[in-house]
């Protein structure tokens, strides 16, 4: 790896809408994507709710806030392709990967094959991934 590339992790542990952290975290990820660093996102605890499918905020009787969940689907286009989801956090909430948005990216090293961005990982895997990071931004 080149000397000036760092491993950046965005650690998300909060649910969307109730507080602004999830939305403003995503804004950092989008800006950060332009810096060509080795980026990954971790979703732990209530952070897994950020990826829930079928988020609906408008119109009619919605909460009237911007539904920012479609932005996660654009992450692949920004070369943000590693979204680690803590398996135990998912299971504790009665969720499986099927309840999450189907996020994908096109792998340029594999003839642009479409691949899933969400990787459900065990505690041990996530612990190891976290420990390799140079910079961890927590939200």
């Amino acid at each position: 790896m080149e000397g000036d590339v760092k491993k950046f992790m965005y650690l998300n542990r909060k649910a969307p809408y109730g507080t602004v952290y999830a939305l403003e975290s995503l804004e950092v990820v989008l800006i950060g994507a332009a810096f060509d660093q080795d980026v990954s996102l971790a979703f732990v605890d209530d952070g897994v709710y950020q990826l829930a499918n079928n988020q609906t905020t408008t119109p009619n009787d919605g909460i009237g806030m911007k539904n920012f969940s479609p932005t996660y689907k654009a992450l692949g286009d920004y070369d943000v392709t590693k979204l680690y989801v803590d398996q135990e956090s998912l299971e504790a909430r009665g969720l499986s990967v099927d309840d999450l948005m189907p996020l994908t990216y096109e792998d340029e090293d594999d003839d642009w094959a479409e691949k899933p961005s969400i990787r459900v990982v065990s505690r041990e895997e996530l612990t190891n991934i976290m420990d390799e990071q140079d910079v961890v931004l927590s939200f």
């Binding site: 542990r13 605890d45 803590d86 135990e88 505690r123 612990t127 420990d131």
Partner: peptide, 15 residues
């Protein structure tokens, strides 16, 4: 909050 619990569950030996 569960911050401590999550931290202990997701931190490596030696950290």
């Amino acid at each position: 909050k569960n911050a401590l619990e999550s931290c202990l569950n997701l931190s490596k030996a030696g950290s």
